[in-house]
Amino acid sequence: MPAPKNTFKQALKEGHAQIGCWVGLADAYAAEVMSTCGFDWLVIDGEHAPNDLRSLRDQLQVVSPSDSHPVVRLPIGETWMVKQVLDAGAQTVLIPMIDTAEQAAEMVRACRYPPEGVRGVGSSLARASKFGEIADYLHSANDEICLLVQVESVEAMDNLDDILAVDNVDGVFIGPADLAASMGHLGNANHADVVATIEDAVTRITKAGRAAGILITDLNAAKRYLDLGATFVATGIDVTLLANAGRKLASDSKALMV
């Protein structure tokens, strides 16, 4: 029995657009709620949300059986972190702050078993292999791991073509907020220069035959990037959805007393 089919990776390879949402509440119950909403993919965020390996695992356990594919974003591109989340059951990882082809290649190696990579061979202990029940896991896992690298700096944009030339990088995700800051426009991802840079990057990524992704909560902008060829687009964040809905309800409710 081989490793489970990564339907998200297959969809990207076939050019089928996938709509996603960020999951940052760092709680399995909240992640389970989000998994019922109809998104194609959900990012379980380990960079800016207060997650650790156990909470990432707990969220993988509830999202994986749903129709929403779980993507784990790590805090940073460290081989030991990749090893742990893959063994915990993640099949798709998003690595932030990739600035060079060398960094991208290091993450490729971290995701793959030898001789193609350096992933530790301990699958019998791992949730990923159903604790050894998937007999052919070691020989099939490489094909089903999806590696997404996040480019979000001027340096990354300068090196984008080299990053795109790295084999087995399945998708390149653009981080608008950090890119804007790197370009000198902190807090203004809608600056014309930032938008132009993002549009150029999406075009370059798709022309190279790789999947392009972005998080953008403006649906008009999301449509523009989809039309440019982006194939994995996140349009919301659970934390802000809850906060904005709660603030509006509180404001509207207090207005009843006027």
Rank of each mutant, 00 (worst) to 15 (best):
K5Y: 02
N6C: 01
T7L: 05
T7V: 06
F8C: 04
Q10A: 06
Q10V: 01
A11Q: 02
A11W: 01
A11Y: 01
L12N: 03
L12I: 04
E14I: 00
G15W: 03
G15A: 07
H16L: 13
H16G: 03
A17N: 06
A17R: 10
I19D: 09
I19R: 11
I19C: 10
G20L: 07
G20W: 05
C21L: 14
C21S: 15
C21D: 04
W22P: 02
W22D: 02
V23A: 13
V23E: 08
V23Q: 08
V23C: 14
G24N: 14
G24V: 08
G24R: 12
G24I: 09
A26P: 14
A26G: 14
D27C: 13
D27I: 02
A30R: 05
A30S: 15
A30H: 08
A30E: 08
A30N: 12
E32L: 06
V33T: 05
V33S: 04
V33I: 14
M34W: 08
M34E: 11
S35N: 07
S35P: 09
T36E: 11
C37F: 04
C37H: 03
C37L: 13
C37S: 07
F39E: 03
D40P: 05
W41N: 12
W41V: 05
L42T: 07
D45Y: 03
D45A: 05
H48K: 11
A49S: 15
P50E: 09
N51H: 15
N51K: 04
D52G: 12
L53C: 06
L53S: 13
L53Y: 10
R54Q: 14
R54F: 10
R54T: 14
S55F: 02
L56A: 07
R57H: 13
R57P: 01
R57Y: 06
R57W: 03
D58V: 02
Q59P: 03
L60I: 07
L60R: 11
Q61I: 10
V62T: 08
V63R: 04
V63Y: 03
S64P: 06
P65G: 07
P65A: 04
S68L: 09
S68K: 11
S68R: 10
H69A: 15
P70A: 13
V71L: 11
V71K: 08
V72H: 08
V72W: 04
R73Q: 14
L74K: 08
P75Q: 10
P75K: 11
T79I: 09
W80H: 15
M81F: 02
M81T: 11
K83W: 06
V85P: 12
L86C: 13
D87F: 05
D87Y: 06
G89W: 03
A90R: 09
A90D: 10
L94S: 04
I95H: 00
P96K: 00
M97P: 01
M97N: 09
M97H: 07
E102N: 01
E102Y: 00
A104F: 01
A104P: 00
E106C: 03
